[in-house]
Design a protein around this nucleic acid. Sequence first.
DNA 1: CTCCAGGGATGAT
DNA 2: ATCATCCATGGA
Length: 309
Amino acid sequence: HWVADDGGFYGLIGELPVFVRQEGRKLCVKVAPPACSRTSFGAGRRGEDHPRALDATATIRNYFALDHQLDEICRSFPKDSVMDASADYCRGLRIIRQPKWECLATFICSSMKQVAHIRQISQTLRKRFGEPRPTEHRVLYTFPTANSVAVTSEKELRGCALGYRAKNLRATAKLVSSGEANLEDWSRWPDAKLRAYLGALPGVGPKVANCVMLFAYQRLRAFPIDVWIERVLRQQYFPSRKKVTAQRLREFSETYFGEHGGYAQQYLFHHARTALRKPTTSRTSGRQASSLTCYISCQCPGAGIMFRA
DNA sequence: CTCCAGGGATGAT
DNA sequence: ATCATCCATGGA
């Protein structure tokens, strides 16, 4: 849902409105004050001295996963030409820690949709059913709670261009809001059990379950297989071979790429979608990450964040 | 205009 | 288990 403007991105981390901008190896952030305050985006005081700003620092650092040791993660990748090229191309790309319900809901909406359209659906859901968070520069909207989605009619959800996904989104929202599906409690389960529980939710199959495990539950081994990554696997790792079943691809992806397979998947995915797509046209903005991932070039965990007054 | 998109549920081999 | 079909919608 992040909006690119002013050389950075406006967005909400849960309830926290922030503006983030990469400056060299640092991630500069501005944080909006509480709604009751008159000042906005920290104007007039140094954020470092404000207790809430320190909380915000931890929140932002956690959301963008600045604690991930990218050098160690990349060293765990298998050594092959495709993986090497992807890791080199995507240097700095991180897998974020997204709020669980927000992640689950948006990926339920993602099936057979282009990324641009998923962004549009996500924004529409926020504007119609979320809460406005006015800031100095623009009004941001929180992602609607599971309950607010659950009490919305299917017809009204379809009005957000959800199509057949509306029924699944609403059914899952009901399970989450009722407590029958307690997404926070599921954090304790091991991968297999978590995948099974997620997969039992309406509209959640193997691909979406793996996405939620990867982006919301920090299961860095989870390897979502979508149409793009399936192309990469078949063309690069099973060249000109017939009868490669989906199950064969699955077990290959779960074993070959190792303990951080999800990171390997994201690097392969981003590389394939930007560097390899449309090789005829020179892509000047080819290194921009999609909305579902974030691209931060901060490699050193201790020097990640700087506040701006 | 056509093609296809960060799939899932269901039913038939 | 693997495959076929349908499901809405709009970007490219």
